[in-house]
């Protein structure tokens, strides 16, 4: 088996705060190949964004402890120096943020901001960088790019800003693109356009994409593989089809049940997951989902509250749950049947 392009092994991100240590990510592993898209799903505070900030090395070094392994094309990022990371950021790996208006500098033109990344990594002149910026804007579908390049972010519409953001992230043809909820703030039509754009660009450049979202519909659209996070841990992994069609973890099941399905019967009521996300300062013992899990009492010996379920991945498929295979089949097959006629 060849080494994957991005390999995260047992990643732990712990913040020290005045109240104690927050275990934002607690032992996360995944691989990502070039040209593939990994969707990371989870509630707010599940560690999705923290994971990706750690990959870029943008965590606050004063209070954050990283542990584990992040290998990008064979290079260890956790022990890399700030200098080395600066070389990689925006160049080999880049990121698109959720709120494009807040994430673009209000004081610089769109062109200057795109060109800046290009100049930093290629040493191009201002003129070349500007031409490159125009070209990138054209590629992401901004009309009249040679004119709009001198606009400021506030003169762009929401969708255009996100396109500009993508242009900025892709200006150096990165091999890894991390998209942190890039479509959450956009309306659905624009959202669809942005997704199509990302897919096109991925095909063109063979970029590996990590797509963070809490929107399963978006995942269904763009991801190849899906990783479901809960309380800083991965609870389920598999291909998009496996996770969305035949979930193996009660949390994934809960997520799916709380959103309407277009192709399923309309009379199935939505059932939200009870309770609220766990405190990462003082997380629940055993399985972190057990206080909210509808099936916890089915597990013999109260195992859910005492022992952390292991995540065993076979052929990229697995879930961390104490339910026996029989119990799972009983619970999840019923769900699958209800969703698909």
């Amino acid at each position: 088996m060849s080494t994957p392009f991005l390999s995260v092994r047992d990643l732990r991100v712990h913040f020290s705060t005045e109240d104690g240590v927050v275990k934002a990510v607690d032992g996360l592993s995944f691989d990502l190949e070039k040209g593939k898209t990994l969707g990371i799903v989870g509630e707010s505070g599940s560690g999705k964004s923290v994971t990706n900030m750690a990959i870029l090395g943008l965590h606050d070094r004063r209070n954050t402890a990283l542990d584990g392994e992040i290998l990008l094309d064979g290079k260890e990022l956790i022990t890399a120096t700030e200098r080395e990371l600066e070389e990689l950021r925006g160049n080999t790996m880049s990121m698109i943020f959720q709120d494009a208006l807040a994430s673009l500098s209000p004081y610089h033109t769109i062109g200057a901001q795109i060109g800046e990344t290009y100049r930093k990594h290629t040493g191009a002149s201002k003129k070349e960088a500007r031409e490159r910026a125009v070209e990138m804007l054209r590629r992401v579908g901004i009309p009249q790019p040679d004119i709009r390049v001198d606009d400021y972010p506030h003169q762009f519409s929401g969708g255009m800003r996100q396109r500009a953001m993508i242009a900025m992230a892709l200006v150096c043809d990165p091999e890894l693109l991390i998209a942190d909820e890039p479509t959450t703030a956009l309306d659905v039509t624009v959202q669809a356009q942005i997704m199509d754009l990302l897919k096109d660009l991925q095909q063109e450049f063979g970029t590996a994409i990590i797509f963070i979202t809490h929107d399963l519909g978006v995942i269904a659209d763009i991801a190849d593989d899906v990783l479901v996070m809960y309380g800083g841990r991965c609870v389920e992994r598999g291909t998009k089809k496996e996770v969305l069609r035949t979930p193996q973890h009660p949390y994934t099941l809960g997520l799916l049940s709380s959103m309407p399905s277009l192709d399923g019967p309309v009379d199935v009521p939505l059932s939200p997951i009870p309770g609220s996300p766990p405190s990462l300062l003082n997380p629940p013992s055993g399985c972190r989902f057990h206080p909210r899990c509808a099936f916890a009492e089915k597990v013999a010996g109260g195992l859910c509250s005492t022992e952390r379920p292991t995540l065993e991945i076979v052929d990229g498929r697995g879930s961390a749950c104490h339910l026996t295979p029989e119990q799972k089949r009983e619970i999840f097959d019923g769900f699958t049947a209800a969703r698909t006629h």
Partner: peptide, 26 residues
């Protein structure tokens, strides 16, 4: 602590550049 400062860092700009070109302006 603004988002655009984080973006500037994500672009690969050094702490110093970010400080004097972005934060100063704000």
């Amino acid at each position: 602590s603004e988002d655009y400062v984080r973006t500037a860092r994500a672009k690969g700009l050094s702490r110093r550049t970010v400080f004097f070109r972005f934060a100063w302006r704000g």
